[in-house]
Computed example of a mutant assay.
Amino acid sequence: MKKLYCFDFDGTLTHKDTMFLYLKFYNSSKFNQQFIKHIPLFILLKLNLLDAEKIKKSFISAILKGESKLKIEAKSQEFFDKFYPDIFRENALEFIKNIDYSKTDCYIVTASLDIWVKPFAEKFGMKLLATRAEFKNDVFTGNFVGKNCNGLEKVNRIKEATADGRYDKTIAFGDTSGDQQILDWANEGQFKFFH
């Protein structure tokens, strides 16, 4: 029996959202300045008056744009070394430890950027489908490649990645409205399973 597991990352496997955590770790003084500047946008977002993807891009770009791929990758590895396994839910780590990878394909499917989730996916031996950071000449442009990996995009990306796979069962794990489509799409949708 061949299974497909699709795990959301932030809040599902971890206790907290990693975007703010990573950006603050990357450059705390720049983070603090930009956080204050972005407060009016965060308020408008809470009131559903602005698009989340635009604000996310603006905030990430304000801190990381112009940084080299080499530096970002090094910082992402440092971030992993500092926060693994502390930011993870114990139930999630226990579950992952017991996966039989010979019969199961596993993906982390996340709206977070690939740059900081990659070391965690590698640690778990999972494939990664994430919002993709755009680099030109090995420098981060501040843009994303393609769409923010959230909502319906999660389903599209997993379908694309597993097009040639035959699975007896697909199981998705999520914890927010951004995971609803992938939970509905899977044979089995597990909401807040590790909470």
Rank of each mutant, 00 (worst) to 15 (best):
K37D: 00
E134G: 09
V139R: 10
I36C: 01
I43D: 04
D138P: 10
T110N: 07
F120E: 00
I87T: 06
Q77F: 09
K123F: 08
D100W: 10
D105P: 08
I87G: 09
D114R: 11
V117P: 14
K75R: 12
K136Y: 05
A121G: 01
S76V: 10
F42Y: 10
I55E: 06
K69M: 02
S68E: 00
Q33E: 00
S112V: 06
L70G: 12
K82M: 09
S68Q: 01
D105K: 07
K123P: 14
V109Q: 01
L113Q: 13
S28W: 02
T104G: 06
F135N: 12
D86I: 08
V117F: 06
V139Q: 09
S61E: 03
N48I: 08
C106Y: 01
C106A: 15
K123C: 15
Y101P: 12
A52K: 07
I60D: 04
M126D: 07
Q77C: 06
S68W: 01
L50S: 14
K71V: 04
L93S: 12
L129Y: 02
F120L: 09
I115C: 14
Q34R: 04
L47T: 12
F42Q: 02
P40A: 08
L47C: 13
T110C: 05
Q77E: 09
K46T: 14
L50K: 15
R132W: 09
R89L: 09
L70Y: 11
L41M: 06
I36S: 00
K37P: 01
F42A: 08
T110Y: 10
L113M: 15
G66E: 02
A133N: 04
D100E: 14
D51M: 01
L129P: 07
E94M: 11
G66A: 02
N91M: 05
I63M: 00
V139K: 10
F83E: 01
L44T: 12
L93H: 04
D51P: 00
I39S: 03
K103Q: 15
D51H: 04
L128N: 03
F95N: 13
I55G: 03
T131N: 01
S61D: 00
K75M: 13
K127D: 10
K54M: 02
H38W: 04
E134Q: 13
K97N: 14
L41F: 08
I87C: 09
F59L: 00
I87Y: 04
A92G: 11
H38L: 03
I39H: 03
S102E: 08
K127G: 12
F83G: 02
N48C: 12
F95L: 11
F31T: 02
I108D: 03
G66Q: 03
A92S: 14
W116N: 05
E73Y: 14
E78H: 04
T104E: 04
F35L: 03
S112I: 07
I72N: 05
Q77N: 08
A111F: 07
K103F: 14
F79G: 07
C106P: 11
L128Q: 03
E73W: 10
Q77I: 00
K75N: 10
E90T: 13
F95Y: 15
I96R: 12
K118V: 13
V117T: 03
L49A: 10
N137S: 15
Y84N: 07
A52L: 08
D138S: 07
K75H: 12
N137L: 06
E53L: 01
L64V: 03
L45V: 12
L45R: 13
S102T: 05
